[in-house]
Design a protein around this nucleic acid. Structure first.
Length: 364
RNA sequence: GGAGAGUUGGCUGAGCGGUCAAAAGCAGCAGACUGUAAAUCUGCCGGGCCACGCCCUACGGAGGUUCGAAUCCUCCACUCUCCA
């Protein structure tokens, strides 16, 4: 899921967003036929953010204008983060209580109060397809006891979030930091919660990629994912690099969201089938090759590395546009290739090939 | 012809006796970014080393004063402004 925090995937129009990716399937897996020539590329779902939309333009306005889909001209699915991540990222300007969280707007300092019920209501009123439970995302490095306390609060909030579910689907979120015992307890609690006879529509692993070492993150993911119910989507929140996606799928994850492809694109860091490219590097100044010869996105089939470097070096808006188109296309193509590999029962060899290619030198 | 101001590292531009290899910005070079307070942030940026310290060359040029000069004095070169 590309991240479109404020009902916008940064630097792209909604139309550009819908036409991302390649019909061409990269990485040598084009045989399974899952994607046909005329199938619509581009993401089937994006992520928006409750906290940010609540501040601007405000729920009332989004609802009055017909919901987020109509607001941004997007006819595919939308999932919203509940605002839980902002308890982490905006830790300096919020205060957590049992009832909910008091935020001071990062824009003008005005106070907002967000509770599990309010968060679910706001997400529902905006008309999203999937809402997320309101959770606390604790920082890395705090004690086992503090993580446990935070997790138990998330559990109580999960119950209240679920009770507030109406028309939007609702995903629960497992917490527990890097502590495997807590992760297990959290799965047991979140997976068993029910309201009106049904549980969460999907379950997410939250609270990772908050500063912990990569091996600790995967220890958590590899340990926790198999514990999640197999009949509901498993969503790894906030992850990650292309390698992380492949390894996450290997662990059993179905869904991801991450700002990395969009933010890194704006910062000139581009993902390719042979590893990362810093497009501002001097060595690309006269490089007339496509960014990634194995990619058939608009960027790679239209302009050269030299041009991309020129745009970036001169702060041209088009640099962000081209770079974002490529990075998101790369991610979407990667996920498409993963789906095909799974369908053709060749995921493990696909994974090995993909990971070894990333660390290899570019052939040319 | 006369009066005044100025010349600092790739550029703009501080500094006006030691704490100056010289502020700051830009440019340049490299890196980071993981449920977005990010078109952001960080590091390097005269040269050379057996580099958390030392050596060399440096503030238009040449001399001088001083323990010590980018900073003071003299001459020269060039640039700009104003008056004829």
């Amino acid at each position: 899921m590309p991240v479109g925090t404020r009902a916008s995937v940064k630097s792209l129009t909604t139309d550009q967003l819908k036409r991302l990716g390649s019909n061409h399937v990269p990485l040598g897996t084009q045989d399974s036929g899952l994607r046909t020539e005329d199938s619509a590329p581009g993401p089937q779902i994006i992520l928006n953010n409750t906290y940010h939309l609540m501040l601007r333009p405000g729920v009332d306005l989004v609802e009055q204008l017909g919901g987020v889909h109509k607001f941004m001209g997007w006819d595919r699915a939308v999932l919203t983060d509940s605002g839980g991540f902002q308890l982490f990222s905006l830790a300096a300007i919020r205060k957590i209580r049992e009832e909910g969280v008091e935020f001071r707007s990062h824009i003008d300092g005005s106070p907002y109060f967000l509770t599990p019920e309010l968060s679910v209501q706001i997400q529902t009123r905006m008309g999203v397809d999937i809402a997320m439970a309101f959770d606390e995302c604790p920082a890395y490095g705090i004690s086992h006891a503090e993580v446990e306390k935070s997790m138990l609060l998330t559990h109580r909030w999960a119950k209240r979030s679920l009770a507030a579910r109406t028309t939007s689907a609702l995903f629960g979120i497992v917490q527990g930091g890097v502590h495997l015992d807590l992760r297990k307890r959290s799965v047991e609690e979140i997976a068993s919660l029910e309201a009106d006879g049904s549980g969460f529509d999907g379950i997410a692993i939250g609270g990772v990629s908050v500063g912990e070492p990569k091996d600790e993150m995967f220890e958590v993911v590899n340990h926790t994912t198999p514990l999640l119910p197999a009949d509901r989507p498993r969503y790894l929140m906030g992850v990650g690099t292309p390698e992380d996606l492949v390894n996450g799928v290997a662990a059993g994850i179905d869904m991801f969201d991450c700002v990395m492809p969009t933010r890194n694109a704006r910062n000139g860091s581009l993902f390719t089938s042979f590893g990362k490219i810093h497009i501002k590097n001097a060595k690309y100044a006269a490089d007339d090759r496509p960014l990634d010869p194995n990619c058939s996105c608009v960027t790679c089939t239209t302009v050269s590395r030299a041009y991309l470097r020129h745009l970036y070096a001169n702060d041209e808006i088009a640099a962000s546009v081209y770079n974002t188109i490529h990075n998101l296309s790369f991610y979407l193509d990667l996920m498409g290739a993963i789906r095909q590999a799974i369908a053709s029962n060749s995921f493990h060899s696909f994974r090995e090939g993909f990971l070894s290619r990333l660390s290899s030198e570019e052939s040319s």
